[in-house]
């Protein structure tokens, strides 16, 4: 592997891009705050208008942080899955992990009224939503893994991911038939994906989970590199397959599950960003790729959110639509340019 030091320049570039998109992201929104005021608030804590202060601190900053966490986290979970499943098309959305999270969320949001006899907690707070969504994604991942060990054909995995999407859609439509319109609306809004509406306490919870996911991924870097050769070679290099697989899956489920719970199902970031990072750094070494996808994912998400805001307008587009509009062409471009996708 090339010395990690030789990647310093692209990393500095990415860090600069991240800071720039962060500042841009919090500078634009439904209320226009002069750019100089944003900078002065960030660096010296002085701002002319008290309501601008409130908007920045209670709305835009937590939203920007959620964008960084979810963009980086989803991209990392995509990278983990592409390596684990030896499949360049793997990602939280394609493999049905997001569907699993949606199913967990749907059952919690809409199912609680139907099964109120059993689930009479009435506590659909964000924490229970995060747990339900993570549990859903973890279950789907386990099924996908069970199939992946039995079926060598990578196409089968993708089809199974699609099937999970269908099952989720079916259960959601059954649930929505019986549920109240308020809960249905709540679920539909959740499924649009949104980075806003997160409080500081929720941001800190999300960052806690994402940091655990990142730590587990960093601990798996050596294993991930060995897995590039295939499982048999990895084992012959001293990798304890069973254990490492579970660590990687838990990391993926924590990342994809918690982010989906807080921000809704966000498509394509997990699939496209690892490919972009590989193009950018021209390596498959996870020592480089893990930080690279975190940075690229965060930047992409901040920019998508910036577009979703439609600067100086009161409307906010669903973030899921924006990532798909940007992500799908990226994947098509990669496919047609390189003839075949590699991981």
């Amino acid at each position: 592997m090339k010395k990690t030091g030789s990647y310093r320049i692209p990393f500095i570039f990415l860090l600069l891009a991240l800071s720039l998109s962060f500042v841009l992201n919090i500078s634009f929104g439904s209320v226009s705050i002069p750019f100089t005021q944003v900078l002065s608030e960030l660096f010296s804590g002085k701002i002319e208008n008290e309501s601008w202060n409130y908007i920045l601190w209670s709305y835009r900053l937590p939203k920007a942080l959620t964008a960084i966490l979810s963009g980086g986290g989803l991209a990392l979970s995509g990278l983990l899955m592409q390596t684990l499943f030896r499949n360049p098309l793997a990602g939280p959305f394609v493999l049905g992990i997001s569907s699993g999270a949606s199913l967990g969320a749907a059952l919690l949001i809409m199912g609680s009224s139907i099964f109120s006899g059993i689930l009479s907690f009435g506590l659909i707070n964000t924490i229970s939503l995060a747990i339900a969504a993570s549990a859903g994604s973890f279950l789907v991942l386990l099924v996908v893994l069970a199939v992946a060990t039995r079926v060598k054909d990578t196409m089968a995995l993708l089809i199974i991911g699609l099937m999970f999407g269908s099952i989720t859609a079916a259960i959601v439509s059954v649930l929505s038939y019986f549920t109240t319109s308020e809960e249905l609306q709540r679920y539909v809004y959740w499924s649009f994906g949104s980075l806003g509406d997160v409080s500081w306490s929720q941001v800190s919870l999300l960052s806690g989970i994402v940091i655990i996911g990142i730590a587990l991924s960093i601990a798996s870097i050596k294993t991930l590199n060995a897995l590039l050769l295939g499982e048999n070679y990895a084992k012959s290099l001293g990798v304890q397959l069973q254990k490492s697989r579970y660590i990687i899956i838990i990391a993926t489920a924590l990342l994809a599950g918690s982010i989906t719970a807080f921000a809704g199902p966000i498509a394509f970031v997990g699939l496209a960003v690892p490919h972009l990072a590989r193009q950018l750094f021209n390596t498959t070494n996870h020592q480089v790729l893990v930080p690279a996808v975190l940075l690229c994912g965060a930047i992409l998400m901040l920019l998508c959110d910036l577009i979703a805001q439609i600067p100086s307008s009161a409307n906010v587009l669903p973030i899921n639509a924006i990532t798909s509009i940007i992500g799908a062409p990226v994947v098509i471009w990669l496919l047609t340019r390189k003839q075949k996708m590699l991981f």
Binding site: M1, L229, T283, T284, L342
Partner: peptide, 11 residues
């Protein structure tokens, strides 16, 4: 090797 994207040196 499962990944064909590795360079000879990396592999």
């Amino acid at each position: 090797s499962a990944s064909k994207n590795l360079t000879v040196y990396e592999l």
